[in-house]
Design a protein around this nucleic acid. Sequence first.
DNA 1: TTTAATTCGGATAAAATTGTCCTTTATTAT
DNA 2: ATAATAAAGGACAATTTTATCCGAATTAAA
Lengths: 144, 144
Amino acid sequence: MFSKACEYGIRAAVYIALQSLDGRRVSVNEIAEEIDSPLAFTAKILQQLSKSKVIHSVKGPTGGFEIERTDMDHVKLSKIVHAIDGDEIFVGCGLGLKECNAQKPCPLHDKFVDIRNNLKNMLEQTSLYELATGLEVGLTYLRR
Amino acid sequence: MFSKACEYGIRAAVYIALQSLDGRRVSVNEIAEEIDSPLAFTAKILQQLSKSKVIHSVKGPTGGFEIERTDMDHVKLSKIVHAIDGDEIFVGCGLGLKECNAQKPCPLHDKFVDIRNNLKNMLEQTSLYELATGLEVGLTYLRR
DNA sequence: TTTAATTCGGATAAAATTGTCCTTTATTAT
DNA sequence: ATAATAAAGGACAATTTTATCCGAATTAAA
Ligand code: FES
Ligand code: FES
Protein backbone atom coordinates (compact mmCIF):
# COMPACT_ATOMS: atom_id res chain seq x y z
CA MET A 1 0.00 0.00 0.00
CA PHE A 2 2.55 2.57 1.20
CA SER A 3 6.32 2.43 0.63
CA LYS A 4 8.56 1.48 3.54
CA ALA A 5 9.79 5.08 3.59
CA CYS A 6 6.22 6.28 3.98
CA GLU A 7 5.44 3.78 6.74
CA TYR A 8 8.51 4.88 8.69
CA GLY A 9 7.64 8.51 7.99
CA ILE A 10 4.15 8.19 9.45
CA ARG A 11 5.32 6.24 12.49
CA ALA A 12 8.09 8.81 13.08
CA ALA A 13 5.71 11.75 12.73
CA VAL A 14 3.24 10.22 15.18
CA TYR A 15 6.02 9.60 17.68
CA ILE A 16 7.33 13.15 17.32
CA ALA A 17 3.80 14.46 17.82
CA LEU A 18 3.37 12.38 20.95
CA GLN A 19 6.61 13.65 22.48
CA SER A 20 5.89 17.22 21.43
CA LEU A 21 2.68 17.02 23.48
CA ASP A 22 5.02 16.70 26.47
CA GLY A 23 7.22 19.50 25.21
CA ARG A 24 10.01 17.06 24.40
CA ARG A 25 12.16 17.49 21.31
CA VAL A 26 13.47 14.16 20.00
CA SER A 27 16.58 13.04 18.09
CA VAL A 28 16.75 10.71 15.07
CA ASN A 29 18.43 8.17 17.32
CA GLU A 30 15.55 8.09 19.75
CA ILE A 31 12.95 8.04 16.99
CA ALA A 32 14.55 5.14 15.12
CA GLU A 33 14.84 3.26 18.39
CA GLU A 34 11.24 3.85 19.39
CA ILE A 35 9.62 3.06 16.06
CA ASP A 36 12.07 0.23 15.30
CA SER A 37 13.32 1.59 11.98
CA PRO A 38 16.77 1.78 10.32
CA LEU A 39 18.55 4.83 11.73
CA ALA A 40 20.20 6.39 8.69
CA PHE A 41 17.23 5.71 6.43
CA THR A 42 14.90 7.26 8.96
CA ALA A 43 17.17 10.34 9.06
CA LYS A 44 16.70 10.76 5.31
CA ILE A 45 12.95 10.54 5.62
CA LEU A 46 12.87 13.07 8.44
CA GLN A 47 14.78 15.47 6.18
CA GLN A 48 12.01 15.14 3.62
CA LEU A 49 9.30 15.69 6.19
CA SER A 50 11.17 18.70 7.50
CA LYS A 51 11.46 20.23 4.02
CA SER A 52 7.78 19.69 3.40
CA LYS A 53 6.91 21.34 6.72
CA VAL A 54 5.33 18.28 8.29
CA ILE A 55 7.75 18.48 11.19
CA HIS A 56 10.14 21.14 12.45
CA SER A 57 13.86 20.48 12.97
CA VAL A 58 16.40 22.24 15.18
CA LYS A 59 20.15 21.73 14.77
CA GLY A 60 22.81 21.58 17.44
CA PRO A 61 22.83 20.47 21.06
CA THR A 62 19.33 20.21 22.55
CA GLY A 63 18.16 20.13 18.94
CA GLY A 64 15.99 17.49 17.31
CA PHE A 65 12.53 17.22 15.82
CA GLU A 66 9.23 18.59 17.07
CA ILE A 67 5.75 19.52 15.90
CA GLU A 68 3.88 22.60 17.06
CA ARG A 69 0.72 21.74 18.97
CA THR A 70 -1.36 23.75 16.48
CA ASP A 71 0.25 21.95 13.51
CA MET A 72 -0.61 18.53 14.88
CA ASP A 73 -4.27 19.20 14.23
CA HIS A 74 -4.01 20.41 10.67
CA VAL A 75 -1.23 18.12 9.46
CA LYS A 76 -3.16 15.20 8.03
CA LEU A 77 -1.75 11.83 6.94
CA SER A 78 -2.44 12.77 3.34
CA LYS A 79 0.27 15.43 3.58
CA ILE A 80 2.86 12.90 4.74
CA VAL A 81 1.91 10.32 2.13
CA HIS A 82 1.97 13.00 -0.55
CA ALA A 83 5.40 14.24 0.57
CA ILE A 84 6.97 10.77 0.48
CA ASP A 85 5.05 8.64 -2.03
CA GLY A 86 3.65 11.33 -4.30
CA ASP A 87 0.10 11.26 -5.62
CA GLU A 88 -0.05 7.89 -7.37
CA ILE A 89 -2.11 6.38 -4.54
CA PHE A 90 -4.58 9.28 -4.67
CA VAL A 91 -5.16 9.46 -8.41
CA GLY A 92 -3.51 6.44 -10.08
CA CYS A 93 -5.31 3.68 -12.01
CA GLY A 94 -5.64 0.41 -10.10
CA LEU A 95 -4.60 -1.61 -13.13
CA GLY A 96 -1.64 0.61 -13.96
CA LEU A 97 -2.97 2.50 -17.00
CA LYS A 98 -1.01 5.69 -17.57
CA GLU A 99 -3.76 7.72 -15.98
CA CYS A 100 -7.10 6.99 -14.38
CA ASN A 101 -9.72 8.45 -16.67
CA ALA A 102 -13.47 8.04 -16.23
CA GLN A 103 -13.97 8.76 -19.97
CA LYS A 104 -11.83 5.76 -20.90
CA PRO A 105 -11.91 3.61 -17.78
CA CYS A 106 -10.14 0.32 -17.10
CA PRO A 107 -12.41 -2.64 -16.25
CA LEU A 108 -11.88 -2.11 -12.53
CA HIS A 109 -12.36 1.67 -12.56
CA ASP A 110 -15.73 2.07 -10.79
CA LYS A 111 -14.98 -0.39 -8.03
CA PHE A 112 -11.42 0.81 -7.60
CA VAL A 113 -12.24 4.51 -7.46
CA ASP A 114 -14.66 3.80 -4.61
CA ILE A 115 -11.94 2.26 -2.50
CA ARG A 116 -9.31 4.74 -3.53
CA ASN A 117 -11.62 7.58 -2.47
CA ASN A 118 -12.32 5.94 0.87
CA LEU A 119 -8.58 5.75 1.45
CA LYS A 120 -8.08 9.32 0.29
CA ASN A 121 -10.81 10.62 2.58
CA MET A 122 -9.48 8.67 5.52
CA LEU A 123 -5.98 10.08 4.99
CA GLU A 124 -7.30 13.61 4.53
CA GLN A 125 -9.35 13.42 7.70
CA THR A 126 -6.83 11.81 10.04
CA SER A 127 -4.54 14.21 11.91
CA LEU A 128 -1.31 13.49 13.71
CA TYR A 129 -2.90 14.70 16.93
CA GLU A 130 -5.63 12.11 16.64
CA LEU A 131 -3.11 9.30 16.17
CA ALA A 132 -0.77 10.56 18.88
CA THR A 133 -3.48 10.65 21.54
CA GLY A 134 -4.25 6.97 21.09
CA LEU A 135 -0.58 6.30 21.72
CA GLU A 136 -0.54 8.56 24.74
CA VAL A 137 -3.37 6.65 26.38
CA GLY A 138 -1.43 3.44 25.73
CA LEU A 139 -4.05 1.95 23.41
CA THR A 140 -1.86 1.77 20.32
CA TYR A 141 1.72 0.90 19.44
CA LEU A 142 4.45 2.00 17.03
CA ARG A 143 6.53 -1.16 17.24
CA ARG A 144 6.13 -4.77 18.21
CA MET B 1 -1.38 -0.50 -4.47
CA PHE B 2 -0.55 -3.55 -6.58
CA SER B 3 2.87 -4.40 -8.02
CA LYS B 4 3.49 -3.85 -11.73
CA ALA B 5 3.55 -7.62 -12.14
CA CYS B 6 0.12 -7.84 -10.58
CA GLU B 7 -1.30 -5.04 -12.71
CA TYR B 8 -0.04 -6.74 -15.87
CA GLY B 9 -1.34 -10.06 -14.58
CA ILE B 10 -4.87 -8.77 -14.06
CA ARG B 11 -4.96 -6.98 -17.40
CA ALA B 12 -3.64 -10.10 -19.14
CA ALA B 13 -6.17 -12.37 -17.43
CA VAL B 14 -9.04 -10.09 -18.37
CA TYR B 15 -7.88 -10.00 -21.98
CA ILE B 16 -7.53 -13.78 -22.09
CA ALA B 17 -11.02 -14.13 -20.63
CA LEU B 18 -12.44 -11.77 -23.24
CA GLN B 19 -10.90 -13.70 -26.12
CA SER B 20 -11.86 -17.03 -24.61
CA LEU B 21 -15.48 -15.90 -24.73
CA ASP B 22 -15.01 -15.93 -28.52
CA GLY B 23 -13.26 -19.30 -28.38
CA ARG B 24 -9.94 -17.69 -29.29
CA ARG B 25 -6.72 -18.87 -27.70
CA VAL B 26 -4.11 -16.09 -27.48
CA SER B 27 -0.29 -15.93 -27.51
CA VAL B 28 1.96 -13.95 -25.16
CA ASN B 29 2.84 -11.73 -28.09
CA GLU B 30 -0.76 -10.78 -28.72
CA ILE B 31 -1.46 -10.28 -25.02
CA ALA B 32 1.55 -8.01 -24.43
CA GLU B 33 0.60 -6.04 -27.52
CA GLU B 34 -3.04 -5.62 -26.50
CA ILE B 35 -2.47 -4.71 -22.87
CA ASP B 36 0.65 -2.66 -23.65
CA SER B 37 3.05 -4.52 -21.37
CA PRO B 38 6.68 -5.69 -21.69
CA LEU B 39 6.65 -8.98 -23.62
CA ALA B 40 9.18 -11.11 -21.72
CA PHE B 41 8.06 -9.89 -18.32
CA THR B 42 4.46 -10.63 -19.21
CA ALA B 43 5.48 -14.16 -20.24
CA LYS B 44 6.92 -14.72 -16.76
CA ILE B 45 3.73 -13.53 -15.12
CA LEU B 46 1.58 -15.76 -17.34
CA GLN B 47 3.70 -18.72 -16.20
CA GLN B 48 2.82 -17.89 -12.61
CA LEU B 49 -0.86 -17.55 -13.39
CA SER B 50 -0.74 -20.82 -15.27
CA LYS B 51 0.87 -22.64 -12.34
CA SER B 52 -1.70 -21.25 -9.95
CA LYS B 53 -4.52 -22.37 -12.26
CA VAL B 54 -5.84 -18.90 -12.99
CA ILE B 55 -5.39 -19.49 -16.71
CA HIS B 56 -4.74 -22.54 -18.85
CA SER B 57 -1.79 -22.79 -21.22
CA VAL B 58 -1.29 -24.95 -24.30
CA LYS B 59 2.13 -25.42 -25.90
CA GLY B 60 3.03 -25.74 -29.54
CA PRO B 61 1.51 -24.34 -32.73
CA THR B 62 -2.08 -23.14 -32.27
CA GLY B 63 -1.20 -23.07 -28.55
CA GLY B 64 -1.49 -20.12 -26.23
CA PHE B 65 -3.53 -19.09 -23.21
CA GLU B 66 -7.21 -19.51 -22.50
CA ILE B 67 -9.72 -19.64 -19.66
CA GLU B 68 -12.62 -22.06 -19.50
CA ARG B 69 -15.98 -20.31 -19.57
CA THR B 70 -16.92 -21.89 -16.24
CA ASP B 71 -13.61 -20.77 -14.60
CA MET B 72 -14.16 -17.15 -15.57
CA ASP B 73 -17.01 -16.94 -13.10
CA HIS B 74 -15.29 -18.42 -10.11
CA VAL B 75 -11.79 -17.01 -10.64
CA LYS B 76 -11.91 -13.81 -8.62
CA LEU B 77 -9.35 -11.00 -8.64
CA SER B 78 -8.29 -11.98 -5.15
CA LYS B 79 -6.87 -15.21 -6.54
CA ILE B 80 -4.69 -13.34 -9.04
CA VAL B 81 -3.49 -10.81 -6.50
CA HIS B 82 -2.74 -13.59 -4.06
CA ALA B 83 -0.81 -15.58 -6.69
CA ILE B 84 1.39 -12.64 -7.66
CA ASP B 85 1.64 -10.28 -4.68
CA GLY B 86 0.99 -12.68 -1.82
CA ASP B 87 -1.22 -11.80 1.11
CA GLU B 88 0.42 -8.64 2.45
CA ILE B 89 -2.33 -6.46 0.98
CA PHE B 90 -5.03 -8.65 2.56
CA VAL B 91 -3.61 -8.93 6.07
CA GLY B 92 -0.64 -6.55 6.43
CA CYS B 93 -0.42 -3.58 8.81
CA GLY B 94 -0.84 -0.20 7.10
CA LEU B 95 2.07 1.26 9.03
CA GLY B 96 4.39 -1.68 8.38
CA LEU B 97 4.38 -3.38 11.80
CA LYS B 98 5.46 -7.00 11.48
CA GLU B 99 1.88 -8.13 11.68
CA CYS B 100 -1.50 -6.48 11.99
CA ASN B 101 -2.84 -7.38 15.41
CA ALA B 102 -6.05 -6.02 16.92
CA GLN B 103 -4.71 -6.84 20.40
CA LYS B 104 -1.72 -4.55 19.92
CA PRO B 105 -2.86 -2.24 17.11
CA CYS B 106 -0.92 0.54 15.41
CA PRO B 107 -2.48 4.01 15.63
CA LEU B 108 -4.07 3.62 12.21
CA HIS B 109 -5.40 0.09 12.74
CA ASP B 110 -9.17 0.69 13.00
CA LYS B 111 -9.36 3.07 10.07
CA PHE B 112 -6.96 1.04 7.96
CA VAL B 113 -8.65 -2.30 8.54
CA ASP B 114 -11.91 -0.82 7.30
CA ILE B 115 -10.39 0.13 3.99
CA ARG B 116 -8.34 -3.02 3.70
CA ASN B 117 -11.48 -5.08 4.19
CA ASN B 118 -13.37 -3.08 1.57
CA LEU B 119 -10.57 -3.79 -0.86
CA LYS B 120 -10.47 -7.46 0.13
CA ASN B 121 -14.21 -7.85 -0.32
CA MET B 122 -14.13 -6.10 -3.66
CA LEU B 123 -11.35 -8.38 -4.93
CA GLU B 124 -13.09 -11.47 -3.60
CA GLN B 125 -16.36 -10.56 -5.28
CA THR B 126 -15.09 -9.47 -8.68
CA SER B 127 -14.78 -12.22 -11.30
CA LEU B 128 -12.86 -12.20 -14.55
CA TYR B 129 -16.13 -12.72 -16.42
CA GLU B 130 -17.58 -9.57 -14.94
CA LEU B 131 -14.55 -7.53 -16.02
CA ALA B 132 -14.33 -9.13 -19.46
CA THR B 133 -17.94 -8.33 -20.34
CA GLY B 134 -17.41 -4.61 -19.82
CA LEU B 135 -14.54 -4.85 -22.28
CA GLU B 136 -16.65 -6.82 -24.74
CA VAL B 137 -19.33 -4.15 -24.85
CA GLY B 138 -16.58 -1.58 -25.49
CA LEU B 139 -17.18 0.33 -22.27
CA THR B 140 -13.76 -0.27 -20.76
CA TYR B 141 -10.14 -0.39 -21.89
CA LEU B 142 -6.94 -2.32 -21.13
CA ARG B 143 -4.55 0.22 -22.62
CA ARG B 144 -4.47 3.88 -23.52
C1' DT C 1 9.71 -37.04 -39.91
C1' DT C 2 10.98 -32.54 -40.23
C1' DT C 3 9.88 -27.88 -39.39
C1' DA C 4 7.86 -24.22 -37.12
C1' DA C 5 5.19 -22.18 -33.38
C1' DT C 6 4.53 -21.85 -28.94
C1' DT C 7 5.14 -22.02 -23.68
C1' DC C 8 8.67 -23.09 -19.93
C1' DG C 9 12.68 -22.23 -17.28
C1' DG C 10 17.10 -20.44 -16.07
C1' DA C 11 20.46 -16.83 -16.23
C1' DT C 12 21.27 -12.24 -16.46
C1' DA C 13 20.62 -7.10 -16.63
C1' DA C 14 18.57 -2.63 -15.47
C1' DA C 15 16.10 0.25 -12.48
C1' DA C 16 14.00 1.47 -8.27
C1' DT C 17 13.81 1.17 -3.44
C1' DT C 18 15.88 0.49 0.81
C1' DG C 19 19.68 1.15 3.60
C1' DT C 20 24.60 2.85 5.22
C1' DC C 21 28.55 5.92 5.86
C1' DC C 22 30.95 9.99 6.21
C1' DT C 23 31.64 14.94 5.85
C1' DT C 24 29.63 19.54 6.44
C1' DT C 25 26.84 22.93 8.77
C1' DA C 26 24.46 25.00 12.53
C1' DT C 27 24.03 25.75 17.33
C1' DT C 28 24.53 25.21 22.21
C1' DA C 29 27.22 24.92 26.36
C1' DT C 30 31.66 25.16 28.50
C1' DA D 1 36.94 30.72 21.37
C1' DT D 2 36.44 25.82 21.70
C1' DA D 3 34.39 21.55 22.05
C1' DA D 4 30.49 18.84 21.67
C1' DT D 5 25.91 17.71 19.74
C1' DA D 6 22.59 17.21 16.41
C1' DA D 7 20.52 17.67 11.67
C1' DA D 8 21.73 18.20 6.50
C1' DG D 9 23.54 16.41 2.52
C1' DG D 10 26.18 13.70 -0.69
C1' DA D 11 28.18 9.39 -2.11
C1' DC D 12 27.77 4.74 -2.07
C1' DA D 13 26.02 -0.23 -1.15
C1' DA D 14 22.52 -3.87 -0.80
C1' DT D 15 18.23 -5.65 -1.93
C1' DT D 16 14.06 -6.08 -4.44
C1' DT D 17 11.43 -5.36 -8.41
C1' DT D 18 11.13 -4.93 -13.16
C1' DA D 19 12.65 -6.44 -17.41
C1' DT D 20 15.40 -9.00 -21.10
C1' DC D 21 17.56 -12.96 -23.46
C1' DC D 22 18.20 -17.49 -24.87
C1' DG D 23 17.98 -22.42 -25.01
C1' DA D 24 14.88 -26.48 -23.87
C1' DA D 25 10.57 -28.81 -24.12
C1' DT D 26 6.14 -29.61 -26.33
C1' DT D 27 3.11 -30.09 -30.03
C1' DA D 28 0.72 -29.20 -34.41
C1' DA D 29 1.09 -29.01 -39.27
C1' DA D 30 3.48 -29.75 -43.61
S1 FES E 1 -8.95 3.87 -15.17
FE1 FES E 1 -8.29 2.26 -13.92
S2 FES E 1 -8.96 2.94 -12.01
FE2 FES E 1 -9.67 4.53 -13.24
S1 FES F 1 -1.84 -3.09 13.36
FE1 FES F 1 -1.53 -1.62 11.84
S2 FES F 1 -3.25 -1.97 10.59
FE2 FES F 1 -3.57 -3.43 12.15
